[in-house]
Amino acid sequence: MNLSNYLVLSVLLFSIGATTVLVRRNAIIVFMGVELMLNAANLAFVTFARMHGDLTGQVVAFFVMVVAAAEVVVGLAIIVAIYRTRRSASVDDVNLLKS
């Protein structure tokens, strides 16, 4: 089997994650879409590491995970903070950028 199959799978997951961010309005689901995109990137990293015979790719994936964890903590805190004031978790309700 060609290793590029893994890459194709990674791309598919990434695109699905991106589409999720675009079409869903629930902030938590949008956020999960972002996580999916990060995971897809990680899969690509791991595959590349195997292709090049270099563990650095895995290390980078590891760092991505750590950063993603930090991001989740802050992101969810923001969602909770917004939910507290607006009683809504929909990204469309946060549209102060307009006007």
Binding site: N95, L97, S99
Partner: peptide, 14 residues
């Protein structure tokens, strides 16, 4: 183009 909705900005990026 500026709807103020985050999703539409994200769409423009994509």
């Amino acid at each position: 183009l500026q709807t103020g909705f985050v999703r539409s900005y994200a769409l423009q990026m994509v």
